[in-house]
Design a protein around this nucleic acid. Structure first.
Lengths: 182, 182
DNA sequence: CGACTCCTATCTAGTGATAGGTAGATTCAG
DNA sequence: CTGAATCTACCTATCACTAGATAGGAGTCG
């Protein structure tokens, strides 16, 4: 596999486990059996690696969640939640941007801006997926994003991935009730 | 003021802004006008500072939120939310344990265990504050903790503290509806 | 009082490890 | 030969951490 991709893969895994500042070029290089200078060839500075990571991650999430479709609101919520659920269950990793958002005051600005953009993009997707009739669309979307993100963090800290499943299940239920009520 | 307390204050602020690994003894010392060796006198290892910080923070939150009282469930939710809201509005800092929970795989075990305990304590407080009649108490409590935590992170990343206010307001509203329904 | 001993808290002056980053040589495919 | 990719070998800054000196206050004893 392409070295650049391997670097991104290792770095993503490490950052989603331990955060931006706990990841070093040396450790990544050792893991890949190359020298740290080779990583600097592909990513001159650490912040270059950082925002390349966020860009790739955002594109991947955006693809997984799909375009805004003509599906019901509960299905949309489920699709959104599933992206996070799969990440936690299959990779046993939390959301890269949730991780970086926590550290955001200590990140290079180029990185933190992209993290913000990731969330704005998610919020916009949720808003557009809502039925026309909904009110306060943005706050509803923010609440969903917040709960999913927070549940993921709790699931990791309490070592219980079902916490995230339960939150998503309830959010989908509420979406159904909400849709029926209108 | 007592040097030990000053160290804790600076360290707490720095960690709630940038995370565990982005805080150094040298920076803290410089901020306080002392030498880093003096910090090591009070906290031999960084992890000692780490868990002293979590312990103090947990005690402070526990005190702010108060004992489980004979108040209504909506009032309890409001009291719980207010602790987070005040932290964000007055100090412009996010929750120490939310921050550390994100990084938890990269923390000394003594620290991450205390972070977990902090959340378990909060969950227990919420569960005990619920009316007897409620079902699935633990999952309800987890959802509240998750949304508040996630909303705080989003508020920081999107530079909009009203995101947290809105979430708490809605949680209190739901608590009212929920209490009426029974 | 004054000299002596502790103890606490701070300092100076380092340690070895590791961080991000760089210059320049080498390797190898087209 | 050229250019991309990797290497060796290094830099400077910073990291957590330590040994040992020093300053000053609290007791204690003559």
């Amino acid at each position: 596999m392409d070295t650049r991709t391997q670097i991104l893969d290792s770095a993503e895994r490490a950052m989603r486990l331990r955060g931006y500042h706990a990841v070093s070029f040396r450790d990544l290089a050792e893991e890949l059996g190359i020298k740290s200078a080779s990583i600097h060839y592909h990513f001159r500075h650490k912040e270059d690696l950082g925002f390349a990571l966020v860009d790739r991650y955002a594109a991947c999430v955006s693809k997984s969640v799909g375009p805004v479709r003509e599906v019901s609101w509960p299905e949309a919520v489920d699709a959104f939640g599933s992206v996070y659920r799969n990440a936690l269950h299959i990779q046993e990793l939390q959301c890269l941007c949730g991780m970086l958002a926590a550290e955001s005051a200590g990140l290079p600005e180029k990185v933190s801006k992209r993290v913000t953009a990731f969330f704005e993009h998610n919020i916009a997707w949720l808003v557009e997926s809502m039925p026309e009739s909904f009110k306060d669309k943005r706050s509803k979307a923010l609440r969903i994003q917040a709960e999913v993100q927070g549940a993921m963090t709790l699931a990791v800290s309490l070592s219980d991935p079902t916490i995230l499943d339960a939150s998503i299940h309830q959010l989908v239920q509420e979406a159904k009730e909400h849709s029926r009520a209108i």
